[in-house]
Design a protein around this nucleic acid. Sequence first.
DNA 1: AATTTATTTTTAGTATTACTAAAAATATGG
DNA 2: CCATATTTTTAGTAATACTAAAAATAAATT
Lengths: 217, 217
Amino acid sequence: MLKNNIQVKDNAAPDLGASLRAKRKELKLTMQSVADAAGLSVGFISQVERGLTSPSLGSLASLAAALDTEISSFLHQPSAGSQTTHEASRLAYSVADADVSYERLSTSFAGSKLHSVIVHETPGHRMEPISHHGEEMFYILDGEITVEIEGEVEVLRKGDSIHFESRRVHSTWNHGSSIASILWCGTMDVFGDAPAPIHKKASPQEVATYPTGETEK
Amino acid sequence: MLKNNIQVKDNAAPDLGASLRAKRKELKLTMQSVADAAGLSVGFISQVERGLTSPSLGSLASLAAALDTEISSFLHQPSAGSQTTHEASRLAYSVADADVSYERLSTSFAGSKLHSVIVHETPGHRMEPISHHGEEMFYILDGEITVEIEGEVEVLRKGDSIHFESRRVHSTWNHGSSIASILWCGTMDVFGDAPAPIHKKASPQEVATYPTGETEK
DNA sequence: AATTTATTTTTAGTATTACTAAAAATATGG
DNA sequence: CCATATTTTTAGTAATACTAAAAATAAATT
């Protein structure tokens, strides 16, 4: 008997079970209820949460749905991607605080309407909700962020993008543990080369509160 | 015998197989090579890519690794009317020839002026000189290209960018030995959602890189 | 054209494991 | 304490993930 098949085992998701459990606890749900909601058995939930077994994609999808969470949230991977930063000679400058730095990409010429910049955001940093004219696009070069547009929350990871009208109230949050680099492209003049009033209507508690003292690891 | 378990089936990921295939094609890899890299069999790859079976999480992880992509990229859930695109769930389509493929990033809504797309260019390929209205920006995600703008020649490598008025005659050339991936962003409607004639020839037939006549199940 | 050779699809079968149901264990609390 | 809710364990099966090899298709070569 040849036994040359490689054991990939639970290499898939480091602590998928733990994540599922954490989420369930966060929602204060019982195994029974999520089992029902997902059409699975309690015992199985227990096994999955403790990593004794790995759910199928279908079950994981049901599980994620029962927990009202995106399936990919449970599958963080140590990203084997390369990241050579040889984009030399671009000076990064920070405005206001040191949590964010910018690398300007676009130039400005007469009548230019297109602006682009790479934004580096430190872990935990939030971009306050804002609304203005024009439209914009993000492309995640590295790391991951949470984007909220008029209540809709999306998680963007490396390679993902989003395109929307700037007038819709939007905010971002680097929920990850590493710096997020976002390639921003839009029609609004973010550099102030031309007068462009940023209508900042940041209401105090308009945004959902993320940190509830949860001990995230 | 009770048969009350609901068939969630391939509800997990709408077109996970298609995504995997698209990514493989994009990297110009053969089933054999990814099978080897992932420690799986060719036949199985075939089955997975056509949605005949669903890989386990472990296998999916191996597969993602073999394709140098984050696992979550393949598991994007259909969220309500989002304008988000996720890597690998974006289907690349090629126009005219197979030397170039595109991954559309931007959507189009009323009055949208911003368009973005990722362009993959094979080594040696040239983009013919062109001039049109608007402005545009390149950002090199991978590989390197030579850009010529009104006689001025520039070499752009990973992480570099360029921004210019589209009316200036411009052309690009992948002088490197690997596929160049360029994030393109501009004000011209390259997708034809609105009337904007590009250098398009008489063949508006967009040939998907997929097998013609996919047998949908 | 044929005849290679590479690449993908199909087929059939097995070994793995995802999953269940029910019983033990552990906690919760009145 | 007792009663109930919740989680863990156990044992077994039904499903399917996966393989190996053959058939089919496509792509080169002569």
